[in-house]
Design a binder for these strands. Sequence first.
DNA 1: CTAAACCCGAGTAATTAACTATAGTTTCAA
DNA 2: TTGAAACTATAGTTAATTACTCGGGTTTAG
Lengths: 144, 144
Amino acid sequence: MRFSTKGHYGLKAMLDLAQHYGAVPVPLKSVAQRQRLSGYYLEQLFTMLRKAGLIKSVRGVQGGYMLARPPEEIKVGDVIRVLEGPVAPVECVNEVEPKECDQADYCITRIVWVKLRDSIAGVLDSISLADICRGAQKNQQSQE
Amino acid sequence: MRFSTKGHYGLKAMLDLAQHYGAVPVPLKSVAQRQRLSGYYLEQLFTMLRKAGLIKSVRGVQGGYMLARPPEEIKVGDVIRVLEGPVAPVECVNEVEPKECDQADYCITRIVWVKLRDSIAGVLDSISLADICRGAQKNQQSQE
DNA sequence: CTAAACCCGAGTAATTAACTATAGTTTCAA
DNA sequence: TTGAAACTATAGTTAATTACTCGGGTTTAG
């Protein structure tokens, strides 16, 4: 039971944008270097995030990417759903359009997966990018 | 973010054994038929569960499989960990021997994965096979 | 006009998932 | 004592997914 690197890397990149949130866009290359990610690969992730409306892009020289909304208003769940698809420990309890099997009515394991799904979604939707940035700052302070 | 069919099917099969828990072993074939699973595939899952000590086998005619402990004493988490490995939304927060990346100290996303891991483990470890069987019974009664 | 930057689509190697198959061993029961 | 039911072990196979990689575009500040 793993998230793929899409969710993992994508969240890192989004937090990088959150930490540099401001007026000027951040070039993909600098995000990739700071987070040690393949630029080619990150491009794909940013494309997904842009099409989903979580980030905006500015083309041309001095261009780059920036969050479409302030970090307080973007939840980890938003990012993960774009990159990994809807939360669903098994397909039959998918958040969106679950393909229920023919045994759905009496499937005895169903309750487990529903609880799990809700628990996962609960965690992901309770944390904003800003929450994490604050936590990271605190951490650095406490290490000083 | 999905569990594989190992965890999914394996839990179904374990619950089948729980529902038939008693003195006599249940042949694999009958579990496979009731749960509509490939017998060949289920064989592999049962082998893993047996080696992990969750089920016992009886060879020969009239043989089969049975839970090694009563359903109250087997948690969903026990089954899932045998079949899917340790709970770990990403490798660096694996329950067992996490391969921490070189950025572990200052990795900003880490807190998310830890919370998620603990939340998932919490759900899986809070539900026993007996809990689910009881729920299923109740469900059937309420539908009458 | 040129270089920095995003945009888009395709290709690809490696891994994993999900079975499938085959040959063997144990045990009961007729 | 032998045949069939059942578990045991290991290997093969096919398809999908993952995690990139690459090449050629377009936009725009300076």
